[in-house]
Design a binder for these strands. Sequence first.
DNA 1: CCTTGAGCCTGTACCAACTACAGACACTAG
DNA 2: CTAGTGTCTGTAGTTGGTACAGGCTCAAGG
Lengths: 122, 122
Amino acid sequence: MTGCNLETIRYYENIGVMPEPPRSSKNYRVYDDSHVTRLRFIMRSRELGFTLEEVRDLLALVDGGAQTCGEVQVLANTHLTSVRTKIADLKRIEHVLSSTVAQCTGDDVPECPVIDALTEVA
Amino acid sequence: MTGCNLETIRYYENIGVMPEPPRSSKNYRVYDDSHVTRLRFIMRSRELGFTLEEVRDLLALVDGGAQTCGEVQVLANTHLTSVRTKIADLKRIEHVLSSTVAQCTGDDVPECPVIDALTEVA
DNA sequence: CCTTGAGCCTGTACCAACTACAGACACTAG
DNA sequence: CTAGTGTCTGTAGTTGGTACAGGCTCAAGG
């Protein structure tokens, strides 16, 4: 249906981002469209890297029914900033790693620029 | 000395990437240069995003004293690939987020492109 | 000499965001 | 009727640490 692991949904119920659904006579969870919609919202948020705490904030706004574009924009911009920071961090790492690995001979010798870089006293 | 939290060093000892150092008469840990060197190696590896499991592998090679540039290069390249994958993932996220947020009016209105994107049925 | 504050010691619990069981019941196909 | 799969509950494990609690030790100041 949503491709979401059932145990993950249960987890979302536990932490309160998904409501507890009604149960069948045999105690099985019975979901309706509103659950599916909400779960998709959470999944899409997670795909975009929002933490569950941020998702909780977004949902609180939407649940209130009185969210404003301005409020949502603030949350999204905060998240966007953290994403950009992560990209910058990873790019630095990528640069160091790739330029170091490029100096490797790849041979059967103990001398290795990668080890040197990691051992570096500086 | 290394700027590393003492509790982190203890954690490294527990998981076996740092050796248990000798103790003083009062049971205090006594570190020497070899510990400092090893800790710096771990810290630099972590800064470059290697997991502790990967650090363990690197250290196993170095500890054997018989590491070859080729072996190290394989580990480094594997890690480099995962770094590049993460960058690509985050760039996609950054693109979606920034182009969506750019459509926000930021006003006191409930309509919001970010919410629309998260609710999207497609 | 005594106190006070800091440092270290051990062990355990906590964080995110799930995943992976164990043990019990339910349901479906052959 | 039985085998295999699904769900149910609750708990423990994952990664890379951080944050105590409760106890010792040590150095400085009065």
